[in-house]
Simulated scan of single mutants.
Amino acid sequence: MDNHNMPENLQQKLENQQSLIRQLTQENEELYHQFNHLMIRNNKLLKRIDDLQKIIDDLHLRVEELQLISNNQLQLNDRLRRVPGGKEVSGAALPGVVAADEQSLDLDLEQLYIRWKSYPGQVAQNAPNLRKQVLMLAYLYRNGSLRANELFQLTGVGGVTGARYVSSLKRFGLIAFNGARKKGHYSITPQGIQFIEGKDEYRGPGGGVSMPAGIPVKHALRIPDPTLMDGDDL
């Protein structure tokens, strides 16, 4: 009787093992799908981490720029506190930097201001801003090249305002920025030197100073002289 039950027991065990294999196979497939889903999510998270790292790097650069602006402003405030009446200090106080003024350069800054105000394409009319830009050109003309903090300190402007001024001068090709952003320097271009030395002008037919060729010049509107009317005009 035991021999007769042996095959039945083996058959039952075999069926149980096959059923277990099917269950394990199904569970394995589910785990495999879950693994693929987790890999996709992991790749997305890694991409988000890269994007966030780029944002953090940009923020670090911005913080460094703001620190430079803050340091320039503090230096300017210190200078203004040390000078009676709040007058600006000469740039000769900076080591290795030569001050530029009318006596040392033999430049007529007032004439440079007038020429810069009427420079082709230059539409700004704020006199203090234009005078500061002319002063920047004079310092760069005298020193050849200056770092941003040196140039801004010499001209007595903050980092934000100074950046706006040099951007305008760069747009007209009068100055250029060379080197890395942190350790670079501003320098005057050949076109800027020509502007300072008055070589960017030419003499017109009447001997007067004219704008460069190709630049339209605005002429004053001429109003004809009134004439007397007679009976035929009525």
Rank of each mutant, 00 (worst) to 15 (best):
G184H: 02
Q17F: 05
D225N: 13
H33M: 11
Y139M: 05
L146R: 01
V157S: 01
L112W: 03
E29K: 10
R48H: 08
H4W: 15
F35L: 15
P216N: 09
M6R: 12
Y119F: 07
R48C: 11
Q191S: 06
E197M: 04
G144K: 01
Q67P: 06
L61G: 12
A148M: 05
S210K: 15
H4F: 15
E64H: 09
M39V: 10
V98Y: 11
L105Y: 07
D2F: 09
A100T: 01
D51N: 11
L38F: 10
P216D: 04
P205F: 04
M39R: 12
Y119V: 01
E27C: 07
H37N: 13
A138T: 00
P224D: 03
I40G: 06
G91V: 04
S168A: 10
R48T: 09
G231W: 15
Q153A: 04
S104I: 08
P95E: 03
R41H: 09
G159T: 06
T161C: 09
K87C: 12
Y139A: 04
K182A: 10
Q122H: 15
Q26P: 02
A163W: 09
K199L: 11
S145C: 13
V134S: 04
L94I: 07
S210Q: 15
S168H: 11
Q53M: 08
N28M: 11
D106C: 10
V97E: 03
R142Y: 03
V166K: 00
R22C: 02
M229Y: 12
H4C: 14
H37L: 10
Q111W: 09
A127Q: 14
R203L: 14
G204N: 03
E88M: 14
P226E: 11
G179W: 00
V160W: 08
V123K: 09
F172E: 00
I193M: 02
E110M: 10
G162D: 02
A93C: 15
K183D: 06
Y139P: 02
V83E: 14
A100V: 01
Q12H: 13
Q17W: 06
D108V: 03
S118G: 15
E64R: 12
N126C: 10
L154K: 15
G179M: 03
I21E: 01
L234Y: 07
W116P: 00
N36D: 14
N9W: 14
E201C: 09
H37F: 13
N3P: 06
L109Y: 05
P212V: 00
R62D: 15
T189H: 03
K183G: 11
G85A: 02
K132W: 07
P120H: 03
I21F: 01
I215Q: 13
L135N: 06
A92T: 11
H37Y: 08
Q153R: 04
Y113S: 05
Q191K: 08
I114T: 12
L140A: 02
L169Y: 00
Q11I: 11
K44C: 09
V83L: 13
D101K: 03
R181H: 14
L130F: 07
K183C: 06
A127M: 11
G208L: 08
I193Y: 01
L24R: 05
P205H: 05
R62S: 13
N42W: 11
G85W: 00
